[in-house]
Simulated assay, not measured.
Amino acid sequence: MATVVPADTASPRLAGVVIDVSPRIGTDNHRLWPLKNPTCIPPFGPLATHCLALHTPCSQLSEDELVMSIAVTHVEFILIHPFREGNGRLSRLLADVMAVQADHGPLDYSAWELRKTDYINAIHAGFSGNYEPMCEFVRAAMVAGDDNLNEPA
């Protein structure tokens, strides 16, 4: 994708020059590689406007609604993968915040690591709109997190 630098630009020597403004991703020795089809990248905005707006705050949700809200938000965040690093950590932090809003403890994700293939399959099911497999992971993590919270120190 190319554009012409306008004449009233801050850099007069570039005025009228055609430059490449194609979206790029990744680095290889500081060289950015063009995206093949940048229109296929889902924007971060819908997560905030459609997912977080519908599913947060979680303080008034029933147990089943909370589990579904965390599952949907987690899957959708993982699917858009908005950052180069830390998407998994941030999605778990978001799930913990949602659980704490509903007076639960932070989730215990240890079973997610032990069942990594099943977890990935749950993400894939969510891609097709079936969030039930992720709900199972969330429910188990919430119960384990609450149990950990109630254990004596």
Rank of each mutant, 00 (worst) to 15 (best):
T39E: 04
T39W: 11
C40P: 08
C40S: 13
C40F: 12
I41V: 15
P42T: 12
P43H: 14
F44D: 03
F44W: 11
F44H: 11
G45F: 14
G45K: 14
P46R: 06
P46Q: 05
P46H: 09
P46Y: 13
L47V: 09
L47E: 05
L47K: 04
A48T: 13
A48R: 12
T49Q: 13
T49Y: 11
T49I: 11
H50M: 13
H50N: 15
C51D: 11
C51Q: 09
C51G: 09
C51R: 08
C51K: 06
L52G: 08
A53T: 15
L54E: 10
L54V: 10
H55D: 03
H55E: 02
H55N: 10
H55M: 08
T56M: 07
T56Y: 06
P57K: 01
P57W: 03
P57F: 06
P57D: 05
P57V: 02
C58P: 04
S59P: 08
S59H: 11
Q60W: 12
Q60H: 15
Q60D: 14
L61A: 06
L61I: 10
L61Y: 09
S62Q: 07
S62M: 01
S62K: 09
E63K: 12
E63A: 14
D64Q: 14
D64P: 01
D64F: 12
D64N: 15
D64G: 10
E65W: 12
E65G: 10
E65Q: 12
L66T: 01
L66S: 02
L66R: 06
L66I: 07
L66H: 05
V67I: 13
V67K: 01
V67C: 00
V67G: 00
M68R: 14
S69W: 01
S69V: 08
S69H: 07
S69E: 06
S69A: 13
I70P: 04
I70M: 05
I70K: 04
I70A: 07
I70S: 00
A71D: 00
A71Y: 06
A71S: 07
A71C: 06
V72K: 01
V72T: 14
V72R: 06
V72Y: 03
V72H: 02
T73C: 10
T73H: 04
T73N: 05
H74Q: 04
H74S: 00
H74P: 04
H74D: 02
V75C: 03
V75S: 03
V75W: 07
V75T: 10
E76S: 04
F77M: 09
F77E: 00
F77T: 06
I78E: 13
I78L: 15
I78W: 05
L79W: 06
L79D: 02
L79Y: 04
L79F: 00
L79V: 02
I80H: 01
I80V: 08
I80C: 06
I80Q: 03
H81K: 08
H81V: 10
P82V: 00
P82M: 01
P82L: 03
P82R: 03
P82C: 01
P82N: 01
F83P: 05
F83Q: 02
F83D: 02
F83S: 03
R84G: 15
R84A: 10
R84S: 11
